[in-house]
Design a protein around this nucleic acid. Structure first.
Lengths: 187, 187
DNA sequence: AAATTTGTAGAGTGATTAGTCAATCAAATT
DNA sequence: AATTTGATTGACTAATCACTCTACAAATTT
């Protein structure tokens, strides 16, 4: 495992459990098993580290959910695919989801980073646009659909983290997806 | 204005813009216009302050949205009332909404505080239970409905903060509420 | 009006921390 | 073989911070 990845891993764990300024860079280095200086060799500042970590995790989430989607035809099934793959990823990586939820509105994430995230999420935006064009999704602003979709997704994940047994109930998962899709599908 | 309130106000502003450990207690005191020692007279620790602030803001949000609801008969209208009053409050107090979003998953908010918040939100939970009993809301777990509702609400608010002009478009607000209600109303 | 409690002040302190730096080491390039 | 480049280390430092402490003022109780 690369040292950078070890640093990412340690930072993720510590930032979510102790907060940004609550974690000394020295501790990140210790947990990662590298020297203090090594951390600053890869990341100019602590801010630089948290921003890179945020991008890294966001990228991973989108990548994971998107691979394999090209095989699917119908829009609704595509959506269901993304939805369930995102949840699957979240259930395996609860720490990463916590991190995203905690830092997406935080002052440590620069507007520059937010802009890079905007590029990553383009995949989703295009899917929504397609749905509106094909008259399968209500004609509401694309941004709004995107925000509502992600927020609802985070909601389900939050619920599943508290009630993990529900994840294996197909009935529950169907109901949950239904609530999700009903929100913006054309009636 | 009471000194405690001045401290709350200063802490709210600084915590949201600079983070918890990113804000020195000395700066909170300075912005609030009180002495350093005064802050620690009212709050045993900095953690104590942030937890009390969180409760204070949460309480305010619920109180604001709930007053006057007893005049309304139908369940859907009650929901619409809560929904729009919450959004109204959020539009006037963007800082407070930012604070809640940023700190609700943070490690600084103790489980004890979370439990006190659970008591506050009882009002909403009861409304949902009533809806399920009267067969107006889909029979999904109450907690899930609550989480989905709040998440969707935060989503709308996030969108409105970025596109404030939409707040005055009745057409938009109707569509938005519709998406909200469609998520869990009985079909 | 004396005694007690509560509010307010701000200087002081011991501990902690982000980032630097000079020194090795390893690998690649000339 | 010589040189450059990049990776890695950990001791060090100047600055910062949460909280204490003592002192006094105001309010409340006796």
């Amino acid at each position: 495992m690369e040292k950078v990845d070890k640093i990412f891993e340690a930072a993720l764990q510590l930032f979510t459990t102790k907060g940004f300024h609550g974690t000394p860079t020295s501790e990140i280095a210790k947990v990662a098993g590298v020297a203090n200086g090594t951390l600053f060799h890869y990341f100019k500042t602590k801010e630089d580290l948290v921003n890179n970590l945020y991008l890294h995790v966001k990228n991973e989430m989108v990548d994971e959910s998107v691979t394999g989607i090209e095989k699917i035809e119908s829009l609704q099934l595509k959506m269901e695919y993304l939805w369930s793959k995102s949840i699957h990823w979240a259930m395996i990586n609860p720490q990463k989801i916590f991190f995203i939820q905690q830092y997406m509105y935080s002052p440590y994430i620069t507007t520059n980073t937010q802009e890079e995230v905007d590029i990553i999420k383009e995949v989703y935006i295009n899917l929504i646009k397609e749905g509106i064009e094909k008259n399968e999704i209500e004609n509401v602003p694309v941004d709004l659909v995107y925000i509502m979709a992600t927020q609802q997704l985070f909601g389900i994940i939050q619920y599943l983290v508290m009630n993990p047994e529900k994840y294996h109930s197909t009935e529950f998962m169907n109901t949950a997806f239904n609530s999700f899709y009903r929100m913006f599908r054309k009636e």
